[in-house]
Design a protein around this nucleic acid. Structure first.
Lengths: 187, 187
DNA sequence: GTCTATAGTGCGATAGAC
DNA sequence: GTCTATCGCACTATAGAC
């Protein structure tokens, strides 16, 4: 496996992923992660607020990308289509490395505490999208509903993508999911 | 305030709510809750898996009620309308005590860890609803999408209800939210 | 980089209900 | 006698304080 990361945060992330996958999240201590990364537990907590956060490093980049997509959608675009643009960005961001996404997903699904953290990241994302829609003049509760609906599509499509062994086209899966949500909810 | 609960779990719940509201969740130790309830910390952990869970006692009742509603919907009912029945049940369940809901909601919103727990309860609920829809013959990903969409409506409507000072009609708010989701997502 | 509070667990003892 | 609820004690690891 390539070691593209030289920084401390990256070394911690690598070490944590391997140990979490190998012996499970709960059975791994921060001291062990630090040792494997060649650093100390104290330094770990300087980089990450807690033992879970090490798996959720890139989440703010995803959020920023999606928010920007909503902002940059044509002024004439409806809330759903602005959300659709954000989903395209998300697909590009999340769809890069199927193998590592599968590994990470397996680790998270195996532990409720990690799942909790994943969910709050998604909730934060939804709030940010709703705010971006609000800037476009979409009133509440519509902005919140459209944003949350987008997150639902993202989650369902991502889960299907990551649970299939072959790396399908995530962007297509998201567009598909949105269309299915529209029809299933229509009546 | 009436004390309808004599059992240990209820005493813990009361004590925890008061202390969390008074001095915050993090600043409250389990030992303090136990003392206030007239029991010990060890007993607390016999009733609740962790310090957060004490605030989420009734969540399985809500889940069971909503699942039953989906199961009992007429066989001819569409996925959305089965979900609508479940939302009616949820409104009845959650809409009982506006004042206490506000207190509880304020506590949860004030602490990210509690919010995480709330979110995982909602995710569990969504999974259960999706399974119930599956039993009715709704295929994936439609079942998952419809269930998650229902949870979105529940959350948005509940938040608006609990954040308004006057106790409005929660069931009406839910039906309203569902209708708005339908129109906002339609195009 | 060390020290400490406290969440949470394992095991065992006790006491009451039946 | 069994079953269940509680308590006591020792222990580990996280997370924050100093």
């Amino acid at each position: 496996m390539a070691r593209w990361e030289a920084g401390a945060a990256g070394r911690f992330r690598e070490a944590a992923m391997e140990l979490y996958a190998e012996r499970g999240y709960e059975q791994t201590t921060v001291a062990e992660i630090a040792e494997k990364a060649g650093l100390t537990a104290r330094t770990f907590f300087r980089h990450f607020t807690d033992k879970r956060e090490v798996l959720f490093a890139g989440s703010s980049d995803l959020r920023d990308g999606m928010v920007t997509a909503v902002r940059q959608a044509p002024a004439s675009a409806s809330p759903v289509s602005a959300v659709g643009e954000a989903l395209d960005v998300a697909a590009k961001f999340l769809g890069r490395d199927h193998a590592m996404s599968r590994r990470r997903h397996a680790i998270i699904m195996a532990n409720p505490e990690l799942l909790e953290r994943e969910l709050i990241k998604m909730a934060t994302l939804a709030t940010a999208l709703a705010a971006a829609l609000g800037e476009r003049g979409v009133p509440e509760p519509d902005a919140g509903l459209a944003a949350q609906a987008g997150i639902v599509v993202l989650q369902v499509a991502f889960r299907r993508w990551v649970e299939s062994e072959a790396p399908a086209d995530l962007a297509a899966g998201m567009r598909d999911g949105l269309a299915r949500l529209q029809t299933v909810i229509a009546r």
